[in-house]
């Protein structure tokens, strides 16, 4: 048996065992308007670079039950907002050797950070690298504040990323994939379509080929990250994109890449670009 045939056989087995077509979940055409004022685009045309791989792109919100969806429509129902409040305290707190807080340079994040989440990850010319929002936050902490960097997927970082996302809610995700970011983007794309782990699953196997189907009791989404960091009912905290990537790859029974690794940075850029056109939702609520 050739390698390819064995893989196909395995995949067929996995598919037969786990993935069942269904119409479970809420009305997929429900509209998400947060606080009665922020209109979210939860379903729209796929970006051109997908070349028809998806008929349209859908926020993870559209795959959840009515009850889970409801938790995101008012900021006082959304448990993720507790952590945004906490991050606001951190934003205004002086930390590190330079005697600075975030607000010392950036003032009110609701004004100064508007639009930032929508374009990250982003090429940083001075550093000569693609930077995630997390990298940029830690760069500020270390270089400008003289403070210790936060853990890549830790609670402080997830909360700060959520705070910085809030003023961009409702704006369309619009990460650049060309120019100097093209190389990183292509690397991310390759990872997206590469099968990993003992189950030999790629991101695309579940989130492109089988979204909207059930994998046992889970309603598979397109794996969009426009809502990250996301408050999950499962672990009742904010989860960053890299922590989620790690969980997904681990579930393929693979040794995962590390949060903050070049691989996950590239994957974040690529996955974010698959959601170009969806609204920034963070902090969103998912199961």
């Amino acid at each position: 048996m050739t390698r390819t045939r064995r893989r196909n056989a395995l995949w067929a087995f996995a598919a037969a065992a786990c993935v069942v077509a269904t119409s479970a979940g809420a009305d997929e055409n429900a509209r998400l308007v947060v606080n009665g004022e922020i209109e979210m685009v939860t379903r729209t045309a796929a970006p051109a670079h997908l070349n028809g791989a998806l008929p349209d792109i859908r926020s993870g919100w559209t795959f959840r039950t009515t009850e889970t969806q409801a938790l995101q429509i008012d900021d006082f129902d959304n448990p993720g907002m507790i952590f945004v409040d906490k991050a606001m305290d951190a934003w205004n707190s002086v930390e590190g050797s330079e005697g600075k807080s975030c607000s010392a340079c950036h003032g009110n994040p609701m004004e100064s950070m508007k639009g930032v989440r929508a374009v990250y990850p982003k090429w940083n010319e001075a550093a000569g690298e693609v930077r995630t929002l997390v990298m940029q936050i830690n760069d500020c902490r270390v270089k400008r504040m003289g403070a210790k960097p936060w853990k890549y997927t830790g609670a402080d970082m997830a909360a700060m990323e959520a705070l910085i996302s809030v003023p961009s809610r409702g704006m369309a995700v619009n990460v650049a994939i060309d120019g100097p970011a093209a190389e990183t983007w292509a690397k991310g794309k390759e990872i997206y379509y590469t099968r990993y782990g003992q189950l030999e699953l790629s991101c695309a196997n579940c989130h492109e080929q089988n979204y909207d189907n059930m994998i046992r009791a889970d309603h598979l989404s397109q794996g969009q990250i426009n809502g990250f960091p996301v408050y999950r009912l499962k672990n009742t905290k904010l989860n960053t994109a890299h922590a989620r990537f790690k969980g997904c790859v681990r579930d393929t029974r693979a040794e995962t890449f590390k949060p903050g690794s070049d691989e996950f940075i590239a994957l974040e850029l690529y996955v974010a670009s698959r959601g170009n056109g969806l609204s920034v939702e963070a902090p969103s609520v998912r199961n």
Partner: peptide, 8 residues
């Protein structure tokens, strides 16, 4: 109460 398939 559903038990997830993977759910990371």
């Amino acid at each position: 109460v559903t038990i997830g398939g993977c759910g990371g």
